[in-house]
Design a protein around this nucleic acid. Structure first.
Lengths: 331, 331
DNA sequence: CAAGTCATGGCAACCGCTTGTCGTCCCGGG
DNA sequence: CCCGGGACGACAAGCGGTTGCCATGACTTG
């Protein structure tokens, strides 16, 4: 690999001039710069990002920490984040932390010195731990609000409201909520919004759980739902909703005839499961994209970043898992 | 951030001694080393990976290039690769190339100087392009064989055979194959193995396509399948299979009663779709893990790496999308 | 007791690029 | 004709480690 020294020698100029020819347009005579660029091109010169990063700290690397890469929830988020990063000439480092705060800490420790900024997707760390690390590198959190730290969230309240309204319009009067992990910020939001919306519409709501945010978690809820008198249930997320539906099918309860089911997030899978899942779609790609853009904006400006959470709209997607309430079938 | 210079000053030794205390155990007196380590610990010293990488080239970074991060096929692969990388104290850089050879080239160009090695998952680049880049960095390819370059593949032949045998045991006599992209190495393998297995069992096979390896691709195949006289079809991958099933359902053709469907890969989604998909399961996590391990092995040994492709076993998972042949219903 | 060996620590060069500072040359104005 | 100032390039000092080589002193060995 040729270096600026090689290029400089070939052009008969000093290395610093070559450096400036690339990074400081105008600082060097236009003709000289053009000549240097051409020679560099011919020699196949590429700046060594490591060497560049050492004195400047500009690695052009951003970290995206996700709690579990195999969770379909993240696919689109990663895609969106990548898009935004690439657009700004950054490379995204995706770190998977396997749902463990310990692994998350380790991964961050490893990645932190390398990256210029961090997006925390559904972090499992404590607020204070996040604050500590936000001091080391610009940070944006996803799906969580943390005063003083920029965050990007979906409008869960609105989504939950839409879901409840939809169910109400189908004449459901008592609906269940399958709660997610206690530590989940989104869970709290969703549940609260549901309760409020239900109250407004004079519906009854009942909370089950908490359950693991997985297919298995949803399956666990089956007996509780069956034993209750809810005619519709809203699940913490799509995975739980799908798990529930599969369990229900196994228990010979029909969706949506016997019970309607609504999920959250609209992950890959919500559409192909059967019946296709009615769900509150989170703007996943936009979430990832916007998080990175927010991060980059915060990095470039000298002023402290905007810390009011950015609220991205959620939308109810009506598919086949919800229907008009029928007489409840008891098993 | 304290540097080795700070630590050295605090200990009253030379910076080089501090460096060696960490990286060259035994080279420095045990007591001195212990003291240095302790002081470093107290000061919160962490080696700057950039500075370390500059002279040594050891970035502890590996790249995994995937054609599309939102494709569920990769989730487990990424997970496996990450696992193996972390285990060896490497960090994985996942690059998404959006199914484009151009983007792939750009991404590689950007990442190459940063990483010590590359795993190419389902590359869209030409053989020669891959060979060129394999000269710059140790490379392992996934799902593709390239003489002279280490590769890790699933035993498609065996999987296809199992699928055909299964279908034969259900008394299907003529089966269809929904082809994937022409450029796909796996597609060729799967089709060939199917043909051979079919011949052995005295079945008739018919090839449709090529189709895009997506849900939409599978949907496209519906009219062809309906118009043909096959009673079972094997799809290039699960996405295509699921797309087909959904299209078939819309066309009022019942799976598996009217036609049996088999997929490939066993991605997330194969289990939750309806009917649950019978599929040839690729050892996805193992694939990613093994690829990284192979890469690391090749990097550390002085001898040229093993280039005979590693064949990981595929297994047929029988679910609900295949059944005994019935009289074929014509629409 | 002289000479050779080994363990240990220090010196300094180097990885490739950035950037503050300085020298030189040229130009115009007083 | 001299001087101030701008444009341009070169010099050199880092960034934070790694590592080859040397100096020193202690210990072994004949």
């Amino acid at each position: 690999m040729p270096t600026i020294y090689d290029v400089a020698a070939a052009c008969g100029v000093a290395p610093s001039t070559v450096s400036r020819a690339f990074s400081r347009p105008g600082r060097v005579n236009a003709e000289t710069a053009a000549r240097i660029r051409q020679v560099a091109e011919e020699m196949g010169y590429r700046a060594n990002p490591l060497a560049r990063a050492l004195p400047t700290g500009k690695t052009s690397l951003l970290a995206l920490v996700v709690s579990d890469v195999t969770n379909p929830f993240y696919f689109e988020i990663i895609r969106g984040a990548e898009l935004a990063a690439t657009e700004a000439d950054y490379t995204l480092l995706v770190a998977d932390v396997h749902e463990s705060a310990t692994v998350e800490r380790k991964a961050l420790e490893r990645a932190l010195p390398l990256v210029e900024g961090v997006v925390l997707g559904t972090s499992r760390m404590s607020d204070s731990a996040i604050r500590v690390m936000a001091q080391q590198r610009p940070t944006v959190v996803l799906n969580r609000v943390l005063t003083g730290i920029p965050s990007v969230i979906t409008d869960n309240a609105r989504g939950a409201r839409r879901a409840v309204e939809h169910l109400a319009s189908l004449e459901h009067r008592t609906i269940g909520y399958l709660a997610g992990p206690e530590a989940s910020w989104a869970d709290g939001m969703r549940w609260r919004a549901m309760r409020e919306a239900a109250e407004m519409l004079d519906l009854r709501v009942q909370r089950f759980g908490p359950f693991a945010p997985t297919l298995a978690g949803g399956a666990e809820a089956v007996p509780l739902v069956v034993a209750s008198n809810v005619t519709a249930v809203v699940a913490y997320n799509d995975l739980v909703a799908i798990g529930l539906m599969r369990g229900l099918a196994a228990a010979d309860v029909r969706v949506p005839r016997d019970v309607s089911v609504v999920g959250f997030d609209n992950i890959f899978g919500a559409e192909i499961c059967s019946p296709a899942l009615t769900t509150v779609a989170a703007p996943l790609t936009a979430l990832g994209k916007y998080a990175v853009q927010t991060l980059l904006a915060g990095m470039s400006s000298r002023t402290p970043p905007q810390t009011r959470p950015a609220l991205l709209p959620a939308e109810l997607i009506i598919r086949d898992s919800t229907a008009r309430r029928a007489r409840r079938r008891r098993s």
